[in-house]
Amino acid sequence: MSAGTSLIKIRGLSKVFKTDAGELNVLEDINLDIMEGEIFGIIGMSGAGKSTLVRCLNFLEKPTKGTVYIDNQDLSCLSQKELYKIRQSIGMIFQQFNLLMQRNVLKNVCFPLEIAGVKKKEAEARAYELLELVGLSDKAKAYPSQLSGGQKQRVAIARALANNPKVILCDEATSALDPATTKGVLALLKDINKRLGITIVIITHEMSVVEEVCQRVAIIDSRHIAEVGYVHDIFTKPTTDAARRLVFPEGERVENFISSRCCRIVFNGSSSFEPVIANMVLEFRQPVNIIFADTRNIDGKAFGQIVIQLPEDKLAGEKMMAYLRNRGLTVEEVKDFV
């Protein structure tokens, strides 16, 4: 657990939707702590209930059971008016941006300030400040329909920041954007977190988004939290099936290739710049088959994994694994992973 105090506490939260076809359990007994100032990811396959969970954090959806504390305030105990008030301190951005199409960019950013009762002049000054922060000062008078997806999301971020929120909830905020724009938006969120100390909760189905910005992550799988922890822990040692499915999205294909002994090599940042596999092959004069490789840069460190097929010779295989372990890598034999 991080050293800070928890800003959001979810306790025993369940959500049941009543539909024509009967009751639909979406979330069951969710318990989670999100610390002040962290970027927290909630990841899961679609239909896992993550969008409902994020809507429970500001009571857009009222939990059927359990509650949410924001800054030690129990949301289920608030009156409707108090709930409106506290929502002003919880910014939210969406997959489809949800900007007001008939208002220009400046007026969109002013909108939450209007709701909060800020005077028009002050609101506009604040809006210009925020547009500067997200790098869109020149688009103040443009209408959302004239902006690109990435620009729209930046406006939405400026709007979410208007009332100096304690936390920003991001509901699949980058899922409608291309990879390059996604990077830009994530960098902006990271920057906001660093500079303003705002806690950010990111809901996504993409592992890459979590790897890119989150410190901790909760994996949600069929109504439950499957696993919570630091991103690099979960990435290097996924303990649940749900986590493994997300870490190895193409795992099933790998399985088909494995005919004999394979081993998984995990890079934790120390040695990915050394051509370790090539050196090993040169050293042993025996070929290995690279079945799966995925390495990337997370938080300034190189992380990743390579799955290789070892030679049939058992001894050579053992020696190779020992060789890799000697170089500070985590190596495990894989028989039937995923």
Binding site: Q96, N98, N163
Partner: peptide
Amino acid sequence: DKGVIEAAQSMG
């Protein structure tokens, strides 16, 4: 758009 209404509700 329902999403825009939801966004406004999320702002209180």
